[in-house]
């Protein structure tokens, strides 16, 4: 049964448990190697650690996040958009506190997906009390294929 719009909207504000993320230097080295970034300095981490740290430490698995919306990865949940907003460069060896919440939901309809839900969530990285970065992401939850309606 399709999650009701009322229940869908009730998920906005859900607090993700979060946690602490140690940005280990070896992970930065390996990440640079994987994505083709130079390993010629160790003062700053690859900026994508704003994303890696946030998603790694949101406190629940992706499968648990999907379950909040009555879905599993087998339902074809897809990434919609992703954003990193860096206030201060991340550094190897530092520990960051991650916290976040579901920030928005929208039920939509398209020819390609039929009814689907867009779910936005946001995770913040703090070093002590200082905001270091924000990771904003959205997932697409297909609910019904090819029902013939469009926006």
């Amino acid at each position: 049964m399709l999650l009701s719009e009322e229940k869908l909207k009730s998920r906005v504000g859900y607090q993700l448990p979060g946690g602490e993320y140690l940005l280990e230097p070896y992970k930065n080295w390996l990440t640079n190697d994987v994505v083709g970034a130079p390993n010629d300095q160790d003062a700053f981490a690859h900026p994508m650690f704003c994303y890696y740290a946030a998603l790694n430490t949101m406190g629940i698995s992706l499968e648990e996040l999907f379950a909040l919306f009555d879905a599993t990865s087998a339902d074809g949940v897809m990434f919609g958009e992703a954003e990193i907003d860096i206030k201060k460069p991340l550094t190897p060896g530092s520990t960051y506190s991650i916290s976040g919440q579901v920030t928005g939901v929208q039920r939509k309809n398209s020819k390609k997906l039929g009814i689907f839900d867009l779910v936005d969530f946001e995770l913040s990285l703090h070093e002590g009390k200082e905001l270091v970065g924000v990771s904003r992401n959205s997932f697409v939850f297909p609910r019904e294929l090819n029902n013939g309606n469009d926006e």
């Binding site: 003062a43 958009e81 990193i84």
Partner: peptide, 24 residues
């Protein structure tokens, strides 16, 4: 990350990277 690399390569300073928003 490839897009981040491109911008960092252009400005020559990894600490100058500030943000990226993408659609897959």
């Amino acid at each position: 990350a490839y897009v981040v690399n491109a911008l960092v390569s252009w400005i020559g300073d990894i600490s100058g990277f500030r943000g990226l928003k993408v659609r897959f």
